[in-house]
Nucleic acid binder design. Structure first.
Lengths: 301, 301
DNA sequence: ATAAGACATGAATATGATTCATACCCATGG
DNA sequence: CCATGGGTATGAATCATATTCATGTCTTAT
């Protein structure tokens, strides 16, 4: 009877009120800012009254918004508790699961977040395979489930998107100072770290740079391993382009500094792929859900 | 973080638990039984445990289902209260709204359900126009909003579906006895009431009858008004084909009896149409929502 | 000013929920 | 025992809607 307040928009509203900004809310929900905005427009439309108080900075709630928020708080707490309850009463999934992932993601992120899952599912035996080519082993049934940033649009596979991976250009602080790196052109003639000698690795960055500002990168140092590249960069060997998640620590500690924040290289989307015929299995669904539930923040995106 | 229990499926589950059967639930929600079934399949999948206990007759809830139901009860009560609250605190919509509807639906159903809305919105002046051709006045802006069973797929119109209208063949009990009406062929040679002399009115019925059982309807009595036709039928003048909602009372009281329940003539779908440019207006949204909220049961479908 | 950050918005797209058509199951009554 | 009817399940097609993409606007800070 009351189609008003049922919709996914409410979850968004609730998260938004907690997050304090559209952008932050979007990050938490692994959506775009635009999606949050659309959702709120619609919700306010349905509610028939403004719920949000957008005065420039800090967004607040209107009186109505506040009341609605309280209701959400209570309602969602109840539902979430019920969900927990359901999960708790489930028998443990059993069996073996062979999980594949890209090397860098797997080693730097994935491994750091699997322990809680393993602990919660002691009957489940999980094996990890980190390697570049993941599709073939998946199709060969050497792996049950892979996490990959390449797109595999096969009808026999079920795809579950996880998060976007953003890239950063970075270098050691001293390196930046030494070469006066302020805009992309400044990279001309400067030592560049790349997976491949040809510099194709950097294309995703170059494509995001306006034509007039294209640097001429002629001093490329090939390093075929991301972690190695990062260490090289920390030592001041050159500038590098890497997934942001792989250098979160280094950025935080100041070992590396991000260059040209205005330039946003193309993102990759990490997804889980699994054979449709096997995606229904309890253990696969469980793991998929767990991986999804790791908030994007955990992945550092 | 918890994508499990957020979905519209929960509302369905909640309604289902109350309704006691998939079909009943579907009716309440103005969906098909199939939709309910799919939703429950998905919900149980997400929950990871069966929630419903389908043992032939009466469907019950499993232990998990019962717990979930309690949570739903509480959560939805909270949210619904919040929704009410929002509505109550809204200033009354003001203005005038010219509502058009088909004659039979308007007079027999619509009018019986508008009073609460009018009372709740004293500042709103609503005029009713019941007539067959509704589209033209709507486009001419002689009407703001029409309820029609004809499809008007114009890009400038916003369509909001309301409910399905089912048709019944019926006649007076004595009439049935007199003519031994058991299967459609028995209508051959029997007096038939129709809006049009040619009997095109009956096509929706004839199309639902298998070829071998087609009656030869050669005694057609033309009556160009549904209500008049109903009175004629009650008096035993002939068999008629009418929207079920228009004879609910007569069927209940036994003045008329439904014939051939196995035959289901094509249904009509009633929808609200309004110009997109005006659909955003508070008063129009309000009325649309109200009409939608009248459960299909109220419409007798 | 100008740049940077945060929100809005329209069109295109992707992800779903819903329907349709049909099959299945189980009681009931010729 | 098999037809019949009421109720549910299911796969494919469809339709609705949420989300993204590509912008635009507005505000605050430099």
């Amino acid at each position: 009877m009351d189609p008003l307040l049922d919709l996914p928009q409410l979850r968004t509203f609730y998260t938004l009120a907690q997050a304090g900004s559209f952008t932050a809310c979007a990050r938490r929900l692994n959506r775009t800012q635009s999606a949050v905005s659309h959702a709120m427009t619609k919700l306010e439309g349905l509610a028939g009254a403004p719920l949000l108080d957008r005065r420039g900075r800090e967004l607040g709630l209107t009186e109505e918004g506040r009341r609605l928020f309280l209701a959400c708080e209570q309602a969602f707490a109840t539902l979430d508790a019920a969900a927990d309850d359901l999960r708790r009463h489930q028998p443990h999934a059993r069996g073996r699961l062979r999980l594949g992932a890209t090397v860098e993601f797997g080693s730097s992120i994935l491994m750091r977040h699997m322990q809680p899952f393993l602990a919660a599912n002691p009957e489940l035996e999980i094996d990890f395979t980190l390697r570049p080519d993941l599709l073939a082993p998946l199709l060969r049934d050497d792996l049950d489930l892979i996490i990959d940033c390449l797109d595999h649009p096969l009808p026999s596979l079920k795809k579950t998107t996880l998060f976007r991976e953003t890239y950063v250009v970075a270098c050691a602080p001293t390196f930046r100072k030494a070469h006066c790196l302020r805009v992309p052109v400044d990279l001309s003639g400067v030592p560049i770290l790349s997976i491949d000698k040809a510099g194709a690795w950097w294309n995703r960055f170059l494509m995001a740079v306006p034509d007039q500002e294209q640097p001429l990168m002629d001093r490329i140092i090939e390093v075929n391993h991301i972690r190695a590249m990062i260490h090289a960069a920390i030592e001041g060997m050159g500038a590098l382009l890497v997934p942001r998640y792989s250098v979160l620590e280094e950025l935080r500690r100041g070992d590396l500094v991000a260059l040209f924040p205005a330039i946003c290289p193309a993102e990759d989307r990490f997804s889980i792929y699994q054979k449709k015929v096997k995606a229904g299995q309890e253990k696969q669904r469980l793991l998929t859900r767990y991986l999804q539930s790791l908030s994007p923040a955990e992945f550092g995106s």
